[in-house]
Amino acid sequence: MGVAHKPKEASIKAFGEIEHELKQKLVHLRRDHDKHEPQSFAAARQLSDEQLSSFSADDFVLVRVATTAYGLVLFGKLRIPALASGGDSKTPAYVHFRAFSAGPDQPALFHSFQTADLEDAQGNKTFHSIFTADDSLVWFNA
């Protein structure tokens, strides 16, 4: 997987191809997690669906690309503007997404959002889907 960098033209084009689906899937993911793991979106609890999905290509701040046998995998860091305003690098205000393309001339397809689970010293797990600016953009499958 390549190093993290600001999105270039090809990544911005791929983002544009999946932007509408990203918005729909993020709202759906939050609603689904609110039923079983409400802490996953606790940082965005106060936001409406419209505020949560109010991002645009200008909020696509970081990308990593991996070449695989079956095509290109794009990992993106996307700022949620309603959370980011006035925050610092430790403020949860980003989602990480994964997309796929069979090649440079093929359309991008949304794959998933990253949801991380954390385990405390007692073995209790908590989940989060909203990340900070300092959280690394890493490979994820879910």
Rank of each mutant, 00 (worst) to 15 (best):
R79P: 10
R79Y: 03
R79W: 01
R79V: 09
R79A: 11
R79E: 07
I80F: 02
I80T: 03
P81M: 06
P81E: 02
A82L: 03
A82R: 04
L83S: 01
L83Q: 00
L83G: 00
A84T: 10
S85T: 15
S85N: 07
S85V: 12
S85F: 12
G86V: 01
G87S: 10
G87I: 04
G87Y: 06
G87M: 07
D88F: 02
S89T: 08
S89G: 03
S89I: 06
T91W: 00
P92N: 07
P92K: 03
P92W: 02
A93N: 02
A93R: 02
Y94V: 00
V95R: 07
H96L: 08
H96S: 12
H96E: 09
F97R: 10
A99C: 09
A99P: 02
F100K: 03
S101E: 12
S101T: 13
A102L: 13
G103D: 12
G103C: 09
G103T: 11
P104E: 13
P104N: 15
D105M: 11
P107Y: 15
A108G: 15
A108S: 14
L109M: 11
L109C: 05
F110S: 05
F110V: 12
H111Q: 12
H111R: 13
H111C: 09
S112N: 13
F113K: 13
F113D: 08
Q114I: 02
T115W: 05
T115S: 08
A116W: 08
A116M: 13
D117N: 13
L118C: 08
E119C: 09
E119L: 05
D120L: 12
D120T: 09
A121W: 05
A121E: 14
Q122F: 12
G123E: 09
N124V: 06
T126E: 06
T126Q: 08
F127S: 12
F127T: 03
H128V: 03
H128M: 06
S129V: 00
S129E: 00
S129A: 03
S129L: 00
I130L: 01
I130F: 00
